[in-house]
């Protein structure tokens, strides 16, 4: 455990030494503040301009869901960039043959940050949320977002050859949040196409306030893990 803690501290220092990655860690707060204070002002402006009683309000949940997803995603992005650098300079390979081990390495690099992102995400929503997400739902959404963050980390590490490719792939992984607008804006039979993405079920869960949707979230996440893990694991040996 001491070895894993040491490895994690080094990992965290690596992130904090990089300005861009530090900003990524703070991004959910910046984004949350922008949504919390900007969206109601924008709503007032639009309502006055178009003489409507509400325009954006029915979609406030979308903004909150984006915030929930973005928190672990941004943390995962910071982690992935550092991991790719370690794969590039060989320190990842070396750490796996120290008392840190392969599992310890994966835990310290891929899992701890998104897991910390759960608490971060819950707090961000409590402070900056603009819809009425209750605490249990907030927690469940944060957990499932963390799982998505880990999937994205696996995917980027598995397929990116270096940091530049990693950045491009992370942007591409934005499709993992397409489930959110799909639920709101696509007609039902077509929106099912997004059912392969955990965020689709995650949005249905939040929109209907029905926890049963946690099951398809788990199932789709498990399928993604199974599909990616072999490639991911081979990248580390």
């Amino acid at each position: 455990m001491t070895a894993i803690m040491s490895a994690f501290k080094r990992f965290l220092s690596g992130i904090l030494d990089d300005f861009m990655l530090t900003v990524c860690i703070l991004a959910p707060i910046i984004m949350g503040a922008a949504l919390r204070f900007g969206i109601p002002i924008l709503e007032n402006f639009l309502c006055r301009t178009f003489s409507e009683s509400y325009i954006l309000k029915p979609y406030y949940l979308i903004f909150d869901l984006l915030l929930v997803v973005m928190t672990p995603m941004m943390l995962a992005f910071s982690g992935v960039m550092t991991t790719l650098e370690e794969l590039d300079n060989g320190t990842a390979k070396y750490l796996m043959v120290t008392p840190v081990g392969k599992t310890g390495y994966l835990t310290s690099r891929i899992c701890v940050l998104p897991a910390a992102g759960i608490i971060y995400s819950v707090i961000v929503i409590i402070i900056f949320g603009i819809s009425d997400i209750n605490l249990l739902m907030n927690f469940l959404l944060s957990v499932t977002s963390a799982v998505t963050g880990i999937i994205v980390s696996f995917l980027v590490v598995a397929f990116a050859g270096n940091k530049v490719e990693g950045m491009a792939l992370t942007k591409l992984c934005g499709i993992f949040i397409l489930g959110i607008p799909a639920v709101f804006f696509l007609p039902t039979p077509i929106s099912y196409l997004c059912g392969v993405i955990p965020s689709y079920w995650f949005t249905l869960m939040a929109k209907s306030n029905n926890y049963i949707y946690a099951l398809p979230i788990l199932a789709t996440s498990a399928v993604w893990f199974i599909l990616i893990y072999k490639k991911f694991s081979s990248k580390l040996v």
Binding site: T2, S6, G90, Y94, T98
Partner: peptide
């Protein structure tokens, strides 16, 4: 390993201190 596996941004001493801390 054949190719150096070091943290380029850390000094030689910091590299050794870090790797030593794992044991």
């Amino acid at each position: 390993f054949e190719f150096p596996t070091l943290y380029d941004k850390l000094s030689a001493r910091k590299n050794l201190e870090f790797f030593s801390s794992l044991y």
